[in-house]
């Protein structure tokens, strides 16, 4: 485990792009946390000027249809994006990891069931599945529903990778040795196998994180995502009409750029992480 972190630190230390990505992600997280604490952009819903005021010194990203600050709404949007990314990942990764471990280790009917489950889930178009879940979940529409819907639909790839890796590793000597000294199945799974597939889980976690952020934007754009709160998807939806009709580009540009930079940073981070954890790389 210590070795794992040392490899990550080493890799990021010599890759400027990856370090920049980490800094950018950290800034987004900081902005999100400050917004959550009510320190940054607290007046995001208030009218502070004329509708559709263009960017100026007073309002660096301009104002929207209701005279609200686009900058403050972008910041609050990052809060939503990070909340959705975090909670979806917290649901999806343990689910995918545990199911993958169990299926790969025990095989038999358990494996057949898990494979059937993720194959079925995978066969349904993702956006349609998310839309359906967002409409039927008892939590109603909103942030919690988006997190749950994304969490319970994003575990498939994690499960698939972990299962494959466990099938390979359970025949290795260290597992056989553990079994021969009387280790229980749960000990073998969580004490011996899990640390050895953790590099996959970490990479998957960052992928699920960025996938959730993008999906939240799409769901909010379609009107079944976050309600009563600024989201980049809602902002792009607003901007869609005013961009063509009125030439109001600032809301569209701000929300799209915020999403683009965060997703790009995460992708660079993922690449570096994958390289750092790749056993073939020194």
């Amino acid at each position: 485990m210590r070795d794992l972190w040392a490899r990550i630190r080493r890799r990021f230390g010599r890759d400027v792009l990856a370090t920049t990505a980490v800094v950018v992600i950290a800034l987004y997280i900081l902005a999100g946390l400050l917004a959550l604490a009510g320190v940054l952009a607290p007046g995001y819903s208030q009218q502070i000027g004329e509708a559709y005021a263009p960017p100026s010194a007073a309002h660096p990203l301009g104002l929207d249809v209701l005279g609200r600050s686009v900058w403050e709404r972008v910041v609050q949007g990052s809060r939503v994006a990070l909340i959705v990314g975090f909670f979806s990942t917290v649901i999806a990764i343990p689910l995918g990891t545990v199911l993958g471990l169990v299926a790969g280790y025990f095989r038999g009917w358990m494996d057949a069931f898990v494979v059937w489950l993720y194959s079925t889930l995978d066969a349904v178009p993702t956006i349609l599945l998310l839309l359906a879940l967002a409409l039927v979940l008892p939590t109603g529409k909103g942030l919690a529903t988006v997190c749950i819907a994304l969490g319970v639909t994003s575990w498939v790839s994690t499960c698939r990778f972990v299962r494959g890796e466990v099938i390979r590793q359970k025949e290795l000597d260290y597992v056989r040795a553990a079994r021969s000294v009387g280790a229980t199945d749960s000990r073998i799974l969580f004490v011996h196998l899990l640390p050895n597939v953790l590099h996959l889980v970490l990479v998957q976690a960052s992928l699920v994180f960025v996938y959730s952020i993008k999906s939240e934007v799409i769901l909010s754009y379609l009107g079944v995502g976050v309600q009563n709160f600024p989201s980049w998807g809602v902002m792009i939806d607003d901007a869609r009409l005013e961009l063509v009709g009125r030439g109001v580009w600032w809301q569209f540009a701000a929300a799209t750029a915020a999403l683009f930079v965060l997703v790009l940073a995460f992708n660079l981070f993922n690449d570096a992480l994958k390289d750092a954890l790749d056993p073939k790389e020194g």
Binding site: S45, Q46, Q47, L66, K141, G223, Q227, N228, D237, D238
Partner: peptide, 26 residues
Amino acid sequence: STEMRQRGEHFAQNMAAIGVKVNVES
């Protein structure tokens, strides 16, 4: 719809000015 939601947000904004909290549900 975009326009209906915006109108709801405007209503909520107006009500917030007198201290009445309104959540828009689409």
